Simulated assay, not measured.
Amino acid sequence: MNAYSNRDLIILSRYADTDTAAFEQEVRSIHEILYRVEGTEQFCQAHEVIDLNHYRILEKSYLVRKIISDPIKPFVFLFNKN
């Protein structure tokens, strides 16, 4: 498996006679999809920062990344857009 596939997955299948090679390929595909979806860029696109100290909302992903890389100050909130 890849280095980023260090996680536990529960995969349910309807078919009891699943081929081992096909099953391993399916697990690799799922890990690749999760790796792309769980990245920092997608996290920053799905969140915004509400800064009550300066009365502003930061939505641009590079600004969100900058805020979360530093220790978060009081009255600065990370908000999920979903």
Rank of each mutant, 00 (worst) to 15 (best):
D17W: 09
Y4S: 12
H47G: 01
R65M: 07
D70A: 14
H54T: 13
T40H: 03
V64H: 03
T20R: 12
Y55Q: 15
P71Y: 07
F43P: 00
D51P: 06
I10F: 15
A22E: 07
H31E: 15
I57R: 14
P74T: 11
A21L: 02
D70P: 00
R28W: 08
I67E: 10
A3F: 08
V64E: 01
R14S: 13
T20C: 02
L78D: 02
T40I: 06
I33C: 07
A3H: 09
S5T: 03
C44K: 00
F23K: 04
R56N: 10
Y62E: 11
Y35C: 07
N82F: 13
S61V: 02
A46C: 06
L63E: 14
K66F: 06
E26D: 10
I72E: 04
D19K: 08
K60N: 12
V49P: 06
A16C: 07
V49L: 06
S69K: 10
K66E: 11
I72V: 15
T20L: 04
V76S: 05
A3T: 09
R65I: 01
K60R: 13
T18G: 02
L12V: 12
L52S: 08
E32A: 13
M1C: 12
S5L: 00
K66V: 01
Q25W: 04
Y4M: 07
A21C: 00
I72K: 08
L34N: 13
D51E: 05
K73V: 07
E59M: 08
F77I: 04
I67H: 03
Y55R: 12
Y62W: 08
K66A: 11
S61I: 02
P74M: 05
A21S: 06
I72W: 04
E59H: 09
D17M: 06
V37A: 14
I50T: 08
K81R: 14
I10A: 15
Y15P: 00
K66W: 04
L78V: 14
E32Q: 14
I67M: 10
D51I: 03
N6A: 09
H31P: 01
V49F: 05
R36T: 03
S61E: 11
L12Y: 13
K66R: 10
L12N: 14
P74A: 14
R28C: 07
K73A: 14
L58R: 03
F43T: 00
I10D: 15
R56L: 11
G39A: 01
H54S: 13
H47T: 02
F79K: 13
K73S: 11
A22S: 06
V49Y: 04
Q42P: 01
A16N: 13
I11P: 05
